[in-house]
């Protein structure tokens, strides 16, 4: 029983995550507080953008998490379809609201940043538009979960929607790029180019990204626990009724 799949057992998942969750949560708070305070108060103002640049300490991590939450949903959906572990389906369900909130944060901070930079709250820029489309996909996914009563049917349908939706989301990304070349600066962080942002911004940004990531993981684990307990409650109530 050293396989990773043993955590697919709801009881085992609850037991283990109960122990791990406080640690993740504490680390998330630590990283978030450090990263944001460092970023907001101990970095210089940008010579061009002034202090508005500091919004990247929220904007970039939340945008990353918005995409990562969707990726996690895709992986969990595939695991559900292939191996039919209930925890996997419930984790995908729990990730969706987190992803939506991160998308909203990314869009809102983007608008707040865009106002002084580009002189407009909103522009139909490819990156902004892609995020808006991602937001719509999240809404559809959550609405489908909510609309179907039978838990397993809902898990099957949302998993397929998630996978098909990912393909269409990617296509939309390229379509939108083609449609409008955009004003958004290229990605702040890239792996190989040497045009990355200066080190003074880089380290606090890394810390706050770690903080956001841990925070999202904690929220998703908590959400999954809630879904498992809700499911368990429904099972118990159904058993009561049957007598």
């Amino acid at each position: 029983m050293s396989s990773v799949w043993e955590y697919a057992n709801p009881k085992k998942f609850i037991q283990t995550s109960d122990r791990v969750l406080p640690v993740i949560a504490a680390m998330a708070v630590l990283c978030l507080v450090t990263g944001l305070i460092w970023g907001f108060f101990f970095t210089p103002d940008d010579y061009k953008q002034g202090s508005t640049v500091k919004i990247i300490f929220i904007h970039v991590p939340s945008a990353l998490m918005a995409i990562n939450a969707w990726l996690m949903m895709v992986v969990a959906s595939i695991i559900w379809i292939v191996r039919r572990h209930h925890v996997s389906a419930l984790a995908a369900r729990a990730a969706a609201p987190v992803g939506v909130v991160m998308t909203i944060i990314a869009l809102a901070t983007g608008a707040i940043w865009g106002q002084p930079m580009w002189g407009t709250w909103w522009a139909w820029d490819p990156r902004l538009t892609s995020f808006l489309i991602l937001f719509l996909f999240y809404l559809g996914y959550i609405a489908l979960w909510a609309a179907i009563e039978n838990d397993d049917t809902a898990a099957d349908l949302t998993s397929i929607l998630c996978i098909v939706g990912s393909v269409f989301a990617l296509m939309s990304r390229y379509a939108v790029n083609f449609w409008n070349q955009g004003l958004h600066q290229p990605a702040t962080l890239t792996v190989k180019t040497d045009s990355n942002i200066a080190d003074v911004f880089y380290y606090p940004l890394m810390v706050s990204i770690a903080g956001f990531m841990l925070f999202c993981i904690a929220l998703i684990v908590l959400g999954t626990q809630t879904e498992i307990r809700a499911r368990r409650m429904r099972a118990l109530m159904a058993r009561e009724r049957m007598g």
Partner: peptide, 10 residues
């Protein structure tokens, strides 16, 4: 044992 699918949750 009526709840095969949910037994894991009990």
């Amino acid at each position: 044992g009526a709840f095969e699918f949910d037994e894991a949750f009990l």
